[in-house]
């Protein structure tokens, strides 16, 4: 019973660490090489995508909620990026002397708002590349989180070997 609780605690901790920082869950489990691989292969597309998107719209749930949801797969990167995005949004509004963004129905004010935002916004083709990179990085980290949880439960084996072992055991039982 205590062993099962330990395994669950390890799995939850590995999952949370992997969510906070790509590779951190694997590092905590002692897989240093895999941790480095996950860190590089997920961080590079994330920050490259953020550099092409710009932080203003790159981590903004108001302008692109689905992208933000995908990025939320890497909490430790997306939360600071969200704070930076909101801070930049407030700076733009302060420069205009406003407290909140105007509605689209106020056409002149809304045009001024977009013009003030424009230097920090990404446009085609960079915006396309940025969205694909950011969303892919966030979703890849979900795979890394699930892998960290699985390895915490199996003592280091990835899902593939766990499935292979259970299939072999089943065929031995039936055979």
């Amino acid at each position: 019973m205590a062993g099962k609780r330990d395994t669950t605690t390890r799995a939850v901790a590995a999952g949370l660490l992997a969510w906070a920082l790509p590779g951190a869950g694997h590092l905590w489990l002692g897989h240093r090489g895999l941790a480095a691989v996950f860190f590089v292969a997920i961080s590079v597309p994330y920050w490259l995508g953020m550099a092409f998107a710009g932080v203003l719209d790159g981590a903004n749930p108001r302008t692109n909620p689905w992208l933000f949801l995908a990025e939320a797969g890497i909490g430790g990167y997306t939360l600071p990026a969200y704070v930076a995005s909101q801070s930049l949004e407030q700076r733009v509004l302060r420069e205009l002397g406003w407290r909140a963004a105007p509605p689209q129905t106020m056409r002149d004010e809304y045009r001024r708002y977009l013009e003030a935002r424009a230097p920090y916004m990404s446009f085609y083709p960079e915006s396309d590349v940025a969205q694909i990179y950011l969303a892919t990085a966030g979703l890849l980290n979900l795979l890394a989180i699930l892998d960290a949880i699985t390895r915490a439960q199996t003592g280091g084996l990835p899902t593939y070997y766990r499935e292979l072992a259970s299939a072999t055991a089943q065929s031995t039982e039936t055979g």
């Binding site: 090489g33 691989v37 590079v44 490259l48 990179y133 892919t136 892998d147 990835p158 070997y161």
Partner: peptide, 22 residues
């Protein structure tokens, strides 16, 4: 050409989830 680094990262992460060692 921006496809290539992204595909490399996807391939690396996918294979890492199926590997026992680096």
């Amino acid at each position: 050409w921006m496809l290539l680094p992204l595909v490399a990262c996807v391939a690396l992460v996918y294979r890492a989830t199926r590997a026992r060692q680096v």
